[in-house]
Amino acid sequence: MDSVAHRLSVGGAGAALELRGVTRLFGALAALTDVTLTVRPGERRAVLGSNGAGKTTLFNCITGDFPPTSGTIRFFGEDVTHFPPFERIRRGLRRTYQISALFPGLTVLDNVYLACCGVSPRRFSPFRPRSNDALVQAAEDLVEAVHLAAVRGRRVAELAHGQQRQLEIALALAGAPRFILFDEPAAGLSPTERRELVDILTTLPSHIGYIIIEHDMDVALRVVESVTMMHNGRIFKEGPPADIESDPEVQELYLGGGHG
């Protein structure tokens, strides 16, 4: 466990995200074992690994969906290990879910508006927005940015799968994100939708860093500058995409394992 001196150290001040010795147990099963990871502000990284490698558990620990069993997590230098999720989100962390986590009964615009409210002090406001409301405008802009303007008034339950995935990204872009965790954003998308996704990701402002979990190498390796390979809850390789792709051990474990 971490000492007080360790907790107060400013070693991670330069990093957007710094994980030290993060372990997560589910009963006797270790979903994550001693994960240590540093990501610079604005850095874009892919996390690769087969099913059960611990990728989504890693995300859940970073956002606080559930806390790590041990280890520390720093977000822009601040120890957020024991923060509830909403405190991390308000500091600029965002995430998307592997299975779309949207509000099917609300319209597209309301979903994004809700996300905009969540990171604004207006979240408790008992007053309806006026037509020129800044948050509504921000929501409209985001809907536009993810190419959903044509269906902005439709209920989310009526959207096609690809559109729901795009909406999922819009929710993560609400407010002023500093770092985003994308959990398989391309899952189930058509080739055209994948190209649109790559466009959205590559045109994000450069100060916004992200980690992306993606099985599709064509998507993953085109939108990142570094790659972390995970296997059985551990990190076993880090490096630029080219090195990872040509690494024989990686090919053995992952690329040759029927994925891709």
Binding site: G64, Y97, G118, F124, R128
Partner: peptide, 29 residues
């Protein structure tokens, strides 16, 4: 009726449908 469409009421319905997602949108559920 009014509150149901204000941010507070919308967020409450969000909390009803998916509390975990609301937390990762910045809401203190």
């Amino acid at each position: 009726s009014y509150l149901a469409r204000a941010p507070f009421g919308l967020a409450l319905q969000g909390v009803r449908d998916n509390p975990r997602r609301m937390a990762t949108l910045g809401f203190n559920v």
